[in-house]
Design a protein around this nucleic acid. Structure first.
Ligand SMILES: [Mn+2]
Length: 561
DNA sequence: GTACAGCGGG
DNA sequence: TTCACACACTCAT
DNA sequence: GAGTGTGTGTCTCCCGCTGTACCT
């Protein structure tokens, strides 16, 4: 904890000071001379000015009415503001911006000044009022308006600190209030960025992804409501964006690789949607991330280059772990008689249940209620169950201070979690843990210990609210280690694509449990669900798919196996 | 008058 | 400002 | 039936205030 925001009126300033010192300590080599100078100037400001700056940089801004700035830790706001202006951290713009004199006033204020009645604008919308009064050069008493300068400086510090653009200083508040909890990891001088060029590349890719996201939305809109003009603009936007994507340099960090991968997929998908298949293909060729290979194969088929498509499908089967892409490749190749699909027999059970379904509850909840009437306890645990057990039993390894994995105190996961070499970089730790876990006593005690000690702390594998200790203990006790070990190893082999697809329900009887995937009317098994169902069944875990049908007019509830 | 969205504080 | 899942829709078969 | 898109819950807090639009 850095400070207690409920007690310390200067909490906002203390957080900013902490952050600035942190980045100066760790990243001073990445700042330009000008940025360093500004930061030094900031640190030399009198406390009230720094306090005001700390407040304003957290707000949307960048314009603020002096008369609306009231903070209990700042006695003389005007004096603090004057200092900020003197050091160029802010500027007075009230007298040179008549538009702001209007925009920063409320409708009620303009009304009490009598200008609405004078120009017959009582019923107009606020933007229209502002525009009209501005055009009339309407004179009003001048408000002092402060414009924040160097806003980018603190944004840069925040980006350096967190290594991403979605966390901000409010993370400090929320954490010190106990609303978020993060594992305490020794940061071992790890850095989010090793050089300025790496930093810049990350920020650029973040920006490009934001734009690509907007264009992706636009491409969806246009698919529904075609408009040639907007489509042409969209396409040129996509092409422009595509040409701005930096090539993978040698100075890559995990976040940048991931960002680039997602950017290529996003652009590829948008281009595909507007029918520019060749350019989409070029995007997909830039990344290994699923479903790039599948998209490449589909496009090659569409463009009548079956040899190329077949090659891509073979590549999927050769070294891609994603079940969805593998299923696609298998299907295509066997359709062409290029492989003999070893009759991938179904190894899980199926059952059908007729229920009088209602709209107000999910099918899963209704089945749970039905099972309870038969004396069984069912929970909708889905992916949380085995992932949660994994998180509990491997907690300290997930948060092991591997170089480069943790670089600030608010990380919910190691930076390299999704990397293929995540396991390799923790090889000996995993091996030792797998050995220890051979003992049921160790498994149970690790679970209990971590459940108590780590309660509520963020862990990418643990969804605290949807689990409870008794359930996990029950499952741990009743799952043979060989099965659990196999599940964990499969999870570890490619967490990104294998953490999902588990059956919906955990159904517990007195001394057994089973897993049931619920399929309501109109819902079908997905390929990664089939993959897990078969795998779990292979491990000897009772696994089935329950198809729920709307009960016909008869009132009987019957279970047909 | 109410409903709602956005913002800001802790 | 994600991701997983169920569900709805379209098209070609 | 396959492919694609959409809606929902969940994730990364939660409450209160303000300003606006729209309303019987
Ligand atoms: Mn289901």
């Amino acid at each position: 904890m850095i400070t207690d925001p409920t007690q310390n009126p200067f909490y906002s300033l203390d957080y900013l000071d902490y952050l600035v010192e942190f980045v100066l300590d760790r990243y001073s080599a990445l700042f330009s001379a000008e940025e360093l100078c500004q930061l030094t100037q900031y640190q030399a400001l009198p406390q009230p000015s720094r306090a005001l700056y700390a407040r304003l940089t957290q707000r949307k801004g960048p314009y603020f009415r002096l008369d609306r700035l009231r903070y209990k830790e700042i006695i003389d706001t005007e004096q603090a503001a004057v200092q900020l202006v003197a050091t160029k951290f802010a500027a007075w713009v009230g007298s040179i911006r008549p538009d702001l004199q209007l925009a920063l006033r409320t409708k009620a204020e303009l009304k009490s000044l009598g200008v609405l009645a004078a120009y017959d604008l009582e019923q107009a919308a606020k933007p229209a009022i502002d525009q009209a009064l501005l055009a009339q050069h309407c004179q009003l008493p001048t408000l002092s308006i402060l414009q924040l300068e160097c806003g980018g400086l603190i944004a840069l510090c925040e980006y350096l600190f967190f290594g991403n653009r979605h966390q901000t200083l409010s993370e400090f508040v929320v954490t010190d209030l106990g609303l978020h909890r993060y594992e305490n990891v020794d940061l071992v001088k790890s850095s989010a960025f090793a050089s300025r060029s790496m930093l810049n590349a990350n920020r650029l890719v973040d920006q490009l992804r934001a734009w690509a996201h907007l264009l992706e939305q636009e491409s969806k809109t246009l698919k529904q409501h075609p408009d040639e003009t907007r489509k042409a603009r969209l396409i040129s936007g996509l092409q422009g964006l595509k040409s701005m994507v930096p090539s993978a340099e040698d100075v890559l960090n995990y976040a940048l690789t991931r960002g680039l991968d997602k950017l290529h997929l996003s652009l590829g998908q948008s281009l595909e949607r507007v029918g520019h298949l060749t350019e989409a293909l070029m995007c997909y060729e830039q990344t290994e991330r699923a479903p790039a290979l599948e998209r490449r194969a589909r496009i090659a088929f569409k463009q009548s280059r079956p040899e190329e498509a077949v090659g891509v499908c073979r590549a999927i089967l050769k070294d891609c772990p994603d079940p969805k892409q593998r299923a696609y490749a298998t299907k295509q190749l066997s359709k062409l008689d290029l492989i003999t699909r070893e009759r991938d027999s179904q190894r899980y059970d199926t059952q059908t249940l007729n229920l009088a379904l209602t709209q107000d509850l999910s099918v899963e909840q209704q089945v749970i209620a039905h099972l309870e009437s038969t004396g069984k306890i069912a929970l909708h645990t889905e992916n949380h169950l085995y992932n949660g057990l994994f998180g509990m039993l491997f907690w300290d390894i997930i948060f092991a201070p591997v170089p480069g994995a943790f670089y600030h105190p608010f990380q919910r996961e190691p930076a390299d979690l999704m990397e293929p070499d995540f396991t390799l970089r923790r090889q000996s730790l995993f091996e030792a843990r797998f050995d220890e876990l051979e003992s049921l006593v160790v498994r149970l005690s690790l679970l209990t210990l971590n459940w108590r000690e780590k309660q509520g702390i963020a862990n990418p594998f643990v969804a605290w609210k949807s689990l409870d200790l008794a359930t996990l203990e029950f499952v741990l006790r009743l799952t043979p280690w060989s099965a659990l070990k196999a599940i964990f190893k499969r999870l570890l082999s490619h967490f990104q694509s294998l953490r999902s697809g588990f059956p919906d329900l955990l159904v517990m009887d007195t001394e057994t449990y089973e897993l049931i995937e619920i399929k309501g009317p109109g819902d079908k098994l997905q390929t990664h669900q089939i993959a897990w169902l078969n795998f779990l069944a292979d491990q000897g875990i009772r696994t089935s798919v329950m198809t729920v049908a709307q009960e016909s007019s008869s009132t009987s509830k019957e279970l047909v196996i």
